[in-house]
Design a protein around this nucleic acid. Structure first.
Lengths: 332, 332
DNA sequence: TGGAGCGTTTAAATCGTTTAAATGGCGGCG
DNA sequence: CGCCGCCATTTAAACGATTTAAACGCTCCA
């Protein structure tokens, strides 16, 4: 590996000049600039990132904290985040927390130790003191659905309400009167928002019966919750807080020989790639993941490059995608 | 952030002693050791990783290069790799290459710049000179299905043949005589191995007709390949080189009103989580992903901690999981 | 011709570690 | 009693970059 010193020698200047040219941090005579550039290219020089972070006090790595990389919702966001970051010359350190507060804390500690200038959190399991310590250390942070912006803290708000409302209205328009909702774990704010939105949307129409069950965002969870829902009262329409649970619900219906959408309509949330490949294809609320990934990075990048600027709130719309798991309720 | 200097002051020793205690790189009087440990704990000291890598010449980050994090096969391996790495005190930098040689080259450059002690490649799109330069720079590398071991290079061999053979035998035993195979992109060695294994297994039984189509590991690819296969000759059994393509094939069959498994049997490969949730559930060859992730890391770790030791070859078995997409061929 | 003034370049300090070499104290042995 | 050798510890020199402050070399004007 070539060092800045070798480049300096080759270009016949001091190392400071090389640094100035490469970082554009000071005016340099065009002629010297050319020589330096040439020497650097010739030697295939790339600044040693460790040395750089040591003196700067920040690394060129940003953190991306996800609750479960195994859930197909996250890899796609990760991918587009990572691509945006790479274009800005930043590496992305992906950390998986398994929806666990303790592991999240640990992940943050490790990110701080890496001296990341910022991190994005696609999970809501972040303890308050962790958030505060992060802000205190001057680390920029972008949260998903946390709802609060502050110095060094931006927020991406997914407009769940819009999509959920559309989903509920869709079911109501089809004539459904008994609706079930399978929610996510209640310690997550995003799960709370979705449930809230469902309840509000369902309340607009009089004479609609509603039941809600909190679950865990997994296929198995969706399966059992659907089962409970069907036992408790014979729902004709079910909205799940994510596609995985929606798919679980479909299997529950299948196992009970209940036809979807003939006897039971099901709507998911997220529009993961697989949603369009279930049999029948799952009606769901789409979250534009590529856009979210890009936006999350942009928000973080803004925070990093100008630490003085206040945190912002960004909005992302969600939209209903009608496929084949919804139909009018059976007439009894 | 506390520095080693502050710890030294608090413990009343020199910074070198602190370093020795913390790294166990030299004998230290138990009494001093205790004082240092206490001081470090008291201050919540964690060594600055940038400074450390600067002087060591290696970072505490290992690379994990995957072709497509969006393909559910990889996140799970990633997860278990990452967990093993974390237990060994190493961070994992995940890089996505989109099956692109150029992007792989770029990813490697960035890893080298980060001074990783080693990297694992779950993709076969690695140019030879890249591999060589990696080895030359003293970076340990673990490849999946590359088949070559050398100094600083280990290899994980997935025993495709075993699983594929079981899949083909399963179809033959059911009485199928016309078999199709949907392969992966031929520039990947793992795709080649699977195709090879299929052809060999099918050749053992006389009177069996066989057709092969190379595709691209995507759902869409599987869909079109299945379509072609059915046009070319009326296959009654199809083996796909991965589950995504198997699922694509199922949809193709569905759209053509061909019942699975009544008229067409389909077998996938990988056993991604979704394989058990398709309708009907996909018969597939299981690759133990958690185990693979762990093993890949262990192999890498061995390479890193003792650079002198020769590269090793590790084997992982694959096994057929019979679910619901296979049945005897229709009697004509 | 000498100096002011300006823009460019340089020397040197710094970041927080690791580690080779130097130091100092102490017991054992001649 | 003095010397040697051994241990535990310290001193100090790296590692490769950024950046402040100082030096330098020009041009231009008096």
């Amino acid at each position: 590996m070539a060092t800045i010193r070798e480049v300096a020698v080759k270009a016949g200047v001091s190392i400071a000049t090389v640094s100035y040219v490469l970082n554009g941090s000071r005016r340099v005579r065009p002629q010297t600039e050319q020589r330096v550039l040439w020497a650097a290219r010739e030697l295939g020089y790339a600044p040693n990132s460790a040395a750089r972070s040591l003196v700067i006090g920040r690394s060129s790595i940003v953190g991306l904290v996800v609750p479960d990389i195994g859930n197909p919702f996250f890899p796609e966001i990760t991918k587009s985040f990572q691509e945006s970051a790479a274009m800005a010359g930043l590496e992305t350190m992906v950390m998986n927390t398994n929806y666990d507060v303790e592991r999240t804390r640990n992940a943050v500690d490790r990110l701080v130790n890496l001296q990341v200038p910022g991190a994005a959190f696609l999970t809501s399991q972040v303890a308050r003191e962790v958030r505060e310590s992060l802000a205190g250390k001057g680390v920029g942070a972008v949260y998903l659905d946390h709802g609060v912006t502050a110095a060094r803290i931006s927020n991406i708000a997914l407009d769940y309400a819009h999509g959920i409302r559309a989903a509920v209205n869709h079911l109501l328009e089809l004539g459904h009167k008994r609706l079930g909702f399978i929610g996510g774990p209640m310690h997550g704010t995003s799960a709370q928002h979705r449930k809230q939105a469902f309840l509000e949307a369902a309340a607009t129409e009089p004479g609609v019966e509603v039941r809600v069950i909190d679950s865990d965002f997994s296929i198995q969870g969706g399966y059992f919750s659907c089962s409970k829902l069907l036992n408790v009262f014979s729902a004709t329409g079910i909205v799940a807080a994510n596609d995985l649970m929606g798919i679980g619900a479909m299997h529950c219906a299948y196992d009970r020989q209940i036809s979807v959408p003939g006897q039971l309509s099901i709507i998911g949330f997220d529009d993961i790639t697989f949603a369009q490949f279930t049999q029948p294809a799952l009606t769901t609320v789409s979250v534009p993941r590529v856009e979210v990934g890009r936006l999350v990075f942009q928000a973080l990048h803004a925070l990093i490059s100008d630490p003085a600027q206040a945190g912002k709130e960004y909005d992302v719309k969600t939209t209903l995608i009608v496929r084949q798991t919804t139909a009018p309720p059976p007439k009894t």
